[in-house]
Amino acid sequence: DELEKRVKKIARKLNLSLDQVEEWLKRNNNDELVEAVKRLKKK
Rank of each mutant, 00 (worst) to 15 (best):
D1R: 10
D1W: 06
D1T: 10
E2G: 08
L3M: 13
L3T: 05
L3A: 13
L3C: 13
E4F: 04
E4P: 02
E4G: 04
E4N: 03
K5N: 12
K5Y: 08
R6F: 14
R6K: 13
R6I: 15
V7L: 09
K8S: 09
K8P: 00
K8H: 11
K9I: 14
K9R: 14
K9Q: 14
I10K: 00
I10T: 02
I10L: 11
A11H: 03
A11L: 14
R12A: 13
R12L: 12
R12H: 12
K13M: 14
L14Y: 14
L14R: 06
L14H: 10
L14N: 07
L14I: 04
N15I: 03
N15D: 08
N15R: 09
N15F: 04
N15L: 04
S17Q: 05
S17R: 03
L18Y: 10
L18A: 03
L18I: 07
D19S: 09
D19F: 04
D19E: 09
Q20R: 06
Q20E: 15
V21A: 03
E22R: 04
E22C: 12
E22T: 04
E23D: 13
E23Q: 08
W24E: 02
W24M: 11
W24F: 13
K26H: 08
K26E: 10
R27F: 14
R27S: 13
N28V: 11
N28I: 15
N28L: 14
N28P: 01
N29I: 08
N29G: 15
N29L: 10
N29S: 10
N29E: 09
N30S: 11
N30F: 15
D31T: 14
E32K: 09
L33F: 06
L33E: 02
L33Y: 04
V34E: 10
V34M: 12
E35H: 04
E35P: 02
E35K: 08
A36R: 02
V37P: 00
V37D: 02
V37F: 00
V37E: 02
R39A: 08
R39I: 04
R39C: 09
R39F: 01
L40E: 02
K41S: 03
K41A: 06
K42H: 07
K42R: 09
K43I: 08
